[in-house]
Write a protein that binds this DNA or RNA. Structure first.
Lengths: 135, 135
DNA sequence: ATAAATCGGACTGTAGCGGTCGGGTTTCTA
DNA sequence: TAGAAACCCGACCGCTACAGTCCGATTTAT
């Protein structure tokens, strides 16, 4: 439990790799997949998401690939997780991540408030780390 | 992703409930399950684990149940998670949680070190919250 | 024309999780 | 002494999410 998904891991590896290159340098999903022994098609999916969310810009065609858009300092791990993960919320309790009425015990829930605070502490941790600090 | 499991949630609720009672007061799994509308049999499993790990002491027989052993201040959320969760590790990356050789990319892994640091920050958050602060 | 690359939907297999069931043991009490 | 109430514990099931794969379409450089 409490593991980053493979998709997020691959996304972090790829973004870090791109950020470590020279400014504006283009990278293909294939070369990254080969270098880190990541399943190519899975990484491709991840890159597409990162593209849609504006982390990278994609170029199709023979010499296509991806280049980093934002300044690496600005790319926080939290944003990457939110971009890749289906469910945008990273709430540690279901009560918060889904509609509250789906929580059967919401009326009597005694642990919610403390855990929400704990949640924000965790969020901060993810918001403080940028891929620049991984290069 | 990144949610506490139901088992952990139930364990927190139960321990908080017991901690909120008077010192040495005994509680049955059934009454806690009823009060918070938790599946009884699942909670029972959780309580058994908490018993084995020394958070509570169990008494069998008609007027049996569980009483809290440790001082509520000393019962940290991190310890509860570790007690209930099968895999003791709460590592956000697989490289660390399992045997490192199972990580195919461990030789070339570039994100491991930063994430390990991030991990320890998260661990701290869980270690700082005790059930006493939930009562 | 072909090859190399992104795009994107559909599919599969597996593992874990939430939950349930059944049978056993202990202990109080009527 | 019988029965009820509680803990104990292993086995089982159904579902979902995730990792990974496959296929076809589009774009573009050579």
């Amino acid at each position: 439990m409490f593991q980053l998904s493979k998709k997020v891991e691959y996304g972090l590896i790829a973004l870090r790799h791109i950020a470590a290159g020279s400014r504006g340098q283009i990278f293909t999903a294939k070369e990254i997949a080969d270098k880190y022994q990541i399943p190519f098609e899975l990484l491709a999916k991840v890159m597409q998401k990162l593209c849609k969310k504006g982390f990278v810009v994609s170029y199709q065609g023979v010499h296509g690939g991806y280049i980093l858009v934002r300044d690496a300092h600005e790319v926080k791990v939290s944003a990457i997780i939110n971009a890749i993960e289906e469910k945008p919320s990273v709430s540690i309790i279901q009560c918060e991540s889904e509609k509250p009425e789906s929580c059967i015990i919401h009326t009597t829930c005694t642990i919610k408030d403390p855990l929400v605070k704990l949640q924000s502490s965790i969020n901060k941790v993810f918001e403080e780390l940028s891929i620049m600090e991984m290069v």
